[in-house]
Deep mutational scan, measured.
Amino acid sequence: SEEEIREAFRVFDKDGNGYISAADLRHVMTNLGEKLTDEEVDEMIREADIDGDGQVNYEDFVQMMTA
């Protein structure tokens, strides 16, 4: 549901600035027990970053979650 997606976005957007940065993503993945290299984190950001601004905004996140 849209509310679940919004809630998930809030979990990833640690600093609440409306964007998921590589640092935000790394933090959440580490908490989930996933040890990722910087390259892996950057690749995840690139794949999710639809508009190419280097971070994942809510619209990018929705597209990723509903793809």
Rank of each mutant, 00 (worst) to 15 (best):
S1D: 05
S1T: 13
S1Y: 12
S1W: 14
E2V: 14
E2Y: 11
E3M: 10
E3N: 11
E3R: 09
E3C: 13
E3H: 13
E3W: 13
E4C: 13
E4P: 03
E4H: 09
E4K: 13
I5T: 02
I5F: 07
I5W: 14
I5M: 11
R6L: 13
R6G: 02
R6N: 03
E7N: 08
E7R: 10
E7W: 03
E7G: 06
E7S: 07
A8I: 05
A8L: 09
A8V: 04
F9A: 03
F9H: 00
F9C: 11
F9E: 00
F9I: 04
R10M: 10
R10A: 12
R10W: 03
R10C: 05
R10I: 05
R10N: 07
V11K: 14
V11F: 09
V11Q: 14
V11C: 08
F12Q: 02
F12S: 02
F12T: 02
F12E: 01
F12H: 06
F12M: 08
F12Y: 10
D13L: 02
D13R: 00
D13N: 01
D13K: 00
K14G: 05
K14M: 08
K14V: 10
K14Y: 14
K14A: 08
D15F: 07
D15C: 05
G16M: 07
G16Y: 04
N17H: 06
N17G: 05
N17K: 09
N17R: 08
G18M: 02
G18K: 02
G18A: 01
G18R: 01
Y19G: 01
Y19M: 11
Y19R: 11
Y19V: 04
Y19I: 05
I20H: 00
I20F: 01
I20L: 03
I20M: 03
I20Y: 00
I20T: 00
S21K: 06
S21M: 06
S21A: 10
A22D: 04
A22R: 11
A22M: 13
A23T: 11
A23S: 06
A23C: 05
A23N: 11
D24L: 05
L25T: 02
L25G: 01
L25E: 00
L25R: 00
L25A: 12
L25I: 12
L25H: 00
R26Q: 06
H27L: 14
H27R: 12
H27N: 11
H27T: 14
V28Y: 02
M29S: 01
M29T: 02
M29A: 04
T30W: 06
T30G: 10
T30P: 01
T30Y: 10
N31W: 13
N31V: 13
N31E: 14
N31M: 15
N31Q: 13
N31A: 12
L32N: 03
L32Q: 03
L32T: 03
L32M: 08
L32V: 05
L32H: 04
L32F: 10
L32E: 01
G33W: 15
G33T: 11
G33L: 13
G33Q: 08
G33C: 15
G33R: 09
E34M: 15
E34V: 15
K35R: 13
K35F: 11
K35E: 09
L36S: 03
L36V: 08
L36N: 03
L36A: 04
L36R: 07
T37I: 04
T37E: 04
T37W: 05
D38I: 12
D38W: 11
D38L: 09
D38M: 11
E39Q: 10
E39N: 07
E39K: 12
E40M: 13
E40T: 07
E40C: 14
E40Q: 13
V41M: 13
V41F: 15
V41G: 01
V41S: 02
V41H: 04
D42K: 06
D42I: 14
D42W: 11
D42E: 14
D42N: 12
E43Y: 15
E43S: 14
E43D: 11
E43W: 15
E43T: 12
E43F: 14
M44N: 01
M44C: 10
M44F: 07
M44W: 11
I45D: 00
I45G: 01
R46V: 05
R46H: 07
R46S: 07
R46F: 05
E47N: 15
E47H: 15
E47C: 15
E47D: 12
E47R: 15
E47F: 15
E47M: 15
A48P: 01
A48G: 06
A48R: 10
A48W: 12
A48N: 07
A48Q: 07
D49V: 13
D49A: 09
I50K: 14
I50E: 05
D51S: 13
D51M: 11
D51C: 10
D51N: 14
G52W: 09
G52A: 13
D53W: 10
D53G: 08
D53F: 10
D53E: 12
D53M: 13
G54E: 05
G54K: 04
Q55Y: 15
V56K: 00
V56H: 02
N57G: 08
N57K: 14
N57F: 14
N57L: 11
Y58E: 07
Y58A: 02
Y58R: 01
D60S: 15
F61V: 14
F61A: 02
F61R: 00
V62K: 04
V62P: 00
V62C: 02
Q63D: 07
Q63G: 06
Q63P: 03
Q63Y: 08
M64L: 11
M64T: 05
M64H: 13
M64C: 15
M65Y: 04
M65Q: 02
M65T: 02
T66E: 04
T66W: 03
T66Q: 09
T66I: 13
T66K: 07
A67S: 14
A67R: 14
A67E: 13
A67G: 09
A67V: 08
